[in-house]
Nucleic acid binder design. Sequence first.
DNA 1: CTACACTATGTCTGAACTGACATAGTTGTG
DNA 2: CACAACTATGTCAGTTCAGACATAGTGTAG
Lengths: 185, 185
Amino acid sequence: MSSTTKTPTLGFAILAVLARGDRTGYDIAAAMRRPVSYFWTAGHSQIHAELQKLLAGRLVAYETTHGPGPQDKKVYRLTPEGSRALRAWVTEPPRERPERDELVLKTYASWLADPALVRRLFADQLAVHEARLAEYEREEELFGEPPRAGDPRFGNYATLRCGLGYERHRAEWCRWMIAQLSDSL
Amino acid sequence: MSSTTKTPTLGFAILAVLARGDRTGYDIAAAMRRPVSYFWTAGHSQIHAELQKLLAGRLVAYETTHGPGPQDKKVYRLTPEGSRALRAWVTEPPRERPERDELVLKTYASWLADPALVRRLFADQLAVHEARLAEYEREEELFGEPPRAGDPRFGNYATLRCGLGYERHRAEWCRWMIAQLSDSL
DNA sequence: CTACACTATGTCTGAACTGACATAGTTGTG
DNA sequence: CACAACTATGTCAGTTCAGACATAGTGTAG
């Protein structure tokens, strides 16, 4: 660590985006809304605040150019320290985040409710997952040959594969639930 | 809603546990650590605070009995209003939680790091998922015949199925990553 | 009989996060 | 030329959550 601060995960998410090219806070927020499939999300207010901290820790720097808005436009870039910190962080084991899934919780309590309404809930969810799956499959086709491990696009492709697997698992579970609920009618 | 307060998801998690039987705050915390597979988690400090709010909204009530500790033991139960609120909540569409997965983020930035170290990271993760999978499979066997939709045990079984599918998807993704990284060495 | 693990309730601080508010230039459309 | 959408930065109040601190009776193993 360069000094006193321990960077939260959001900080590394920002560094990971900047590793692919210099950006403004606005651009980072846009990238994190959906890079290609999911990986992390944050509102712009959080990003601007975190950029201040990264700046204080000298993990990023910026150049001011004139642009729209009341303030000047700031284009951020990784510093060598930032790049080093990011590379070191990548291979460290991730800290477990507690599982908090509202649909699973509803499922846990689903024995209390009208099976027809629960069935409807899962049918809606299934539609959402199938739509996302179709979208991801379209994106997958755009890659053609899977990129190699040293290529930045490998990161995009690998997260896309994760998203693809997740949506398939989720859709299958929804279908199973619907089948179970149909049996009990 | 009974009055002014909108109950957060944690509140419904507590109600869902109480729907299966009266419990103390301590018991609820223990149940939510791992009911059978995952569904929601919270520390006891959060649970005690939330129980106060549920109490104020008259969704739960309690009886005091003498027990260990400086305070008396409080056994909470659902009120009719609580039961009604829970049942109504179950079939409402879940609000989307933002995706925040540290391993996926690391994957997104993995092109920067030493492939051998990334491979190690995923091998460790694979071991974790395989261990959980084995545990869930053991739990699945204990059920024998899948419970029917009106049975409280259906909730447990259905969440277990979700956990099972999730761990399989995750393990498969880890294996795919390891294969990709082995190719590039 | 002593020590430890477990039961049991609660408070408090700080970090992480959400959503609203505030401001204003640029670019493209009708 | 007016208006909307997009670019762009920031503040602030409130909520959620994790982890530490505080306290103390009960049951069990050595």
